[in-house]
Structure formats: structure tokens, C-alpha cells
Design a protein around this nucleic acid. Structure first.
Lengths: 152, 152
DNA sequence: ATGTTTGCAAATCCTTTGCATCAGC
DNA sequence: GCTGATGCAAAGGATTTGCAAACAT
């Protein structure tokens, strides 16, 4: 649980409060699938809170807080909903097929040039944390033919 | 109404039905602000439908249909909500400042390399129609200092 | 004439908010 | 002990759906 401890330390150093609920959400993000929806997080945490269960309301608030601290990213994965992920480790992004829903992971190098150009041309500091790019995967593109055609 | 006629023609050629409501939505997108929210469209169209008014439900359905036809794009502009725009003419995109809300327009050339690399490396045909990139504009970045700091 | 689209109302889903209680430091 | 976080319930907003009536072709 390397990242878990490191993340908790980062938060403590900022003088933020660490409640059981906050620890659980962070643990869920550290130990489970790289990115998760609110529901997935609630499910992951299920049962780990002795007595009561962690309400979605609280998860929303905790994620909002973590986003503000720059610790998690929020990404709209289209049909898969909005997902949250830890912002540690090398950044990466996703290609989402609009037709079959397949998700392809790509590393951050694809965005290096863009980020640099936006900075130098516009002074804009892009926060491309965990981007989802929509389109058609190779198979669906082949199947759809060459034209810019209809996509359900 | 150049683009208006061209758009209507494209749709007719596909054998799709053109109702008054559909014409109104297309007209709104052709003649008004480059991109609009559902509410803005409803407002734009206000009063142009003799008798009744165009319900949001129908606007949702029409935009879904236009998206499927590849005629409009849908973009989440963050605090400005979800906007829809015609996909004609040279593509362009937006930089959205997370701090002050300023929106900077950029042309599609910024994405040419990325699009090409995704195609050649993954066979992925990216549909980068009308992208919004979040971050900090020059002023807000300067004000925030150099660190990767908290953003409300 | 036929199959589609519209409008209404209501359902549904996601997210936020008010307020009393509870917990971290 | 004080400040801030949680949980509940309820509000709020955006989007979807069922169904009958109206419309385009």
C-alpha cells in the first residue's frame, strides 16, 4: 500500500482532517481499479464501515475535496459515466470507442506537445490529468467504412 | 443562410424527416452564437413556433438525432454547462479557465498531431470535434504561482 | 396511409443543500 | 472544546420514457 501511505501523508502535511470515511475513499482509490464511479466506490467500501454505511452524499463531498487538493481527477467516460482516479504515478488517458465502448489506455506522452504549445502560445496551463477522447476503435472504424458516418 | 441551406440539404439527402421543430433547432444553431446550451436553444427558438412552444424534451431528442447524423457536436464546457454546435466549417476548440471561467478559442491545428498519432498507433479514429480543455489561463496561472496548487 | 415525431406528464438519475449530530485535532 | 465532517431527508436539475395525438412523406 505504498501509494496509500504516501497519499495519506500528503494530506496530513496539508493539515487536512482525516476521517474514517475519507480514509476509506482514499483506500478504495488506491487499491481498486484505477478509476471508479461514485457507485463503484460506494460498492468497494461496502461493509468496511462498522455499523452504518458510507452515504453517497459523503462520497461526493470527499471527492470534491480531493479534487480541490489536486489528488484525484474526474473524467467523463461517456457511457461509462463519470469516474475518479488518483493523480499519482505517470499520467495516462483513455480512448473511448463510441460504437463498442472499448477503452484503450494511452500514456501521457501523446499530450506533451499539445500541453507545451498551449503554454507557449497562450500561457495556458492545461490541466490534462486524465482525459477521455471519443472516437471509433480500429475495428469499429473499419466496419463503419471510410465515410464520416452515423454513430449510434 | 448559407450553412443553413447546406445543412438542410445534407439531411434531406440522407432521407431524414424535416419537421418544423427540427428546422427551428437547426436554424438556431446556424444563425446564433456558435455553441448553445439546451436552454439557450429553447430561448432562441422562443415564439417562432406559432401557437405552442418547443418543449425541451423535443430539443433533447433533436440534438441526439443531429449528433447521430454527425451534424452537431456536444461539449461539456464545465461551469457553462453542456453546449451543442454545428460541425461545419473549420473545427475549433476551447480552453476553459477553471479559475476565472474565461474561454479561449483555438483552432484545430493543435490537435492534428494527436489525431494522427492515435490513428497510426492505435487505428483509433478520434472524434475531436469541439473539445474543451480545462486549466488555468495566463493571468490565473501567474496569480496562482508556480506550484501545482489547489483550484476551487 | 403509414410510420415518425411531438408534447405532456411523470419517472428516473445524479448531484447539491439544510440542519442536527458526531468526530478529529 | 471548537471546528468541521457526516448522515439523513429532501430539494433541485437535467435527462429519459410511455403514450396518445399530430405530422411528414
Amino acid at each position: 500500500m505504498n501509494t496509500m501511505e504516501a497519499t495519506l501523508k500528503r494530506i496530513e502535511d496539508k493539515g487536512e482532517r482525516l476521517t474514517i470515511q475519507r480514509r476509506l475513499v482514499i483506500e478504495a482509490l488506491c487499491t481498486h481499479a484505477e478509476h471508479q464511479t461514485i457507485n463503484a466506490i460506494q460498492h468497494t467500501v461496502e461493509g468496511k464501515l462498522t455499523g452504518s454505511k458510507l452515504s453517497e452524499v459523503t462520497i461526493y463531498r470527499i471527492l470534491e475535496w480531493l479534487k480541490g487538493l489536486g489528488i484525484v481527477s474526474q473524467t467523463d467516460m461517456g457511457a461509462d459515466g463519470i469516474v475518479y482516479a488518483l493523480l499519482d504515478t505517470p499520467l495516462h488517458h483513455h480512448l473511448v470507442c463510441l460504437n463498442c465502448g472499448k477503452v484503450i489506455d494511452i500514456d501521457d506522452s501523446y499530450f506533451a506537445d499539445l500541453r507545451g504549445k498551449l503554454q507557449s502560445d497562450h500561457g495556458f496551463r492545461a490541466r490534462i490529468d486524465h482525459m477521455a477522447i471519443y472516437g471509433l476503435c480500429a475495428e469499429c472504424a473499419a466496419q463503419a467504412g471510410d465515410s464520416t458516418d452515423k454513430v449510434e
